[in-house]
């Protein structure tokens, strides 16, 4: 019916006039969607990027944009370090946990438990997560007390829940489960027949992983790394609840938005624009790799 004609029209040689007419009217069906997204996402985004490049005297300049990175260099560096560290650790532990859960045979419910719990923990974040860890490893926390009484006082050495080490530890609580959710389908996609085929051809366990396992898992792992990086880089609520003075980019954006009553300073908008750039690179890479990884999962399901 209608769809058939539409599918063919771009290939047909019936001139530009007819398709253009149809083009106009059919696309109107998407108007509510486009309008909604424009008002609540696109226009605000364009607005904030524009403000990053407008000086106090409303002339266009890149000064605010470059100033942001030079004066808030420490915040950028901290955010970057936290994101890289928690992403690497998240990839390692998340993949290990997913593999352990996927290959465990004995308690049958183990795999679904790990998967379901990961769903809860990966979505948690926010202030609740900060509270959970404050009760465990805060200065008056139960875990701190147990550790200090028996082994080692974390607050007398390098650890504090309110600084860098604390944020890294707390972020692992959502980074690891998120990685589990990313790699679990990929690990399920590894068919046992591939391992048998490799063994029949004389391959050792090492050859199997080098030639089959790792190449198949690689898109998920790399994609997972980018996703985890973006996730940690943009996380605000947990860091803010642990320490309202955290020197991290998201906390700084909120700090400057609050402090700037006139709405003239380009600082929060420049910081947000930088964040959008970082997100575009890492999330864009993740989405591309996700498409790639799903190829194996589809073939495994078939």
């Amino acid at each position: 019916m209608g769809a058939l004609i539409e599918d063919e029209s771009p290939h047909g040689a019936n001139g530009p006039a007819a398709p253009r007419k149809r083009f106009g009217w059919t696309w109107l069906g998407l108007l509510p969607f486009f309008a909604f997204l424009s008002i609540f996402l696109l226009l605000p985004t364009v607005g904030l990027i524009r403000k990053a490049f407008v000086a106090n005297d409303s002339s266009y300049t890149t000064k605010g944009f470059t100033d942001a990175i030079s004066t808030e260099g420490a915040a950028f560096w901290n955010s970057f370090k936290i994101s890289i560290i928690t992403a690497i650790l998240g990839v390692i532990f998340g993949t290990a946990l997913a593999y352990a859960a996927a290959t465990a045979k004995r308690p049958k419910w183990l795999r679904s438990l790990v998967s379901a719990f990961s769903g809860v923990a990966a979505n948690m974040g926010g202030i609740i997560l900060a509270f959970l860890f404050l009760t465990l490893l805060g200065r008056q926390g139960l875990g701190t007390k147990i550790l200090a009484d028996n082994f080692w006082d974390p607050y007398k050495s390098w650890f504090s829940i309110n600084d860098f080490s604390g944020v890294v530890l707390v972020y692992m609580y959502f980074q690891i489960p998120l990685m589990v959710l990313v790699t679990l389908p990929a690990i399920d996609g590894l068919k046992s027949s591939w391992r048998e085929a490799s063994a029949n051809l004389g391959g050792t366990s090492f050859t199997y992983w080098r030639r089959v396992g790792v190449p198949v898992l690689a898109p998920s792992m790399l994609g997972g790394f980018l996703l985890l990086f973006a996730n940690a880089y943009s996380a605000y609520a947990t860091a803010y609840a642990l320490n309202t003075q955290s020197n991290l980019v998201p906390v700084k954006i909120s700090f400057f938005l609050r402090g700037d009553v006139t709405g003239r300073s380009p600082m929060p908008f420049a910081l947000a624009t930088w964040m959008i750039l970082f997100m575009a690179v890492s999330m864009g890479g993740y989405l591309v790799l996700r498409k790639r990884a799903e190829r194996w999962q589809k073939s495994a399901a078939a």
Binding site: L41, R50, A230, F269, A272, I276, M279, M283, G284
Partner: peptide, 19 residues
């Protein structure tokens, strides 16, 4: 998927800039 690129904290800045 664009909201992935504009995380909540950036959207807040957008609200301040536009709304």
């Amino acid at each position: 998927v664009l909201p992935y690129v504009v995380p909540p904290i950036a959207l807040v800045a957008g609200v301040a800039a536009f709304f």
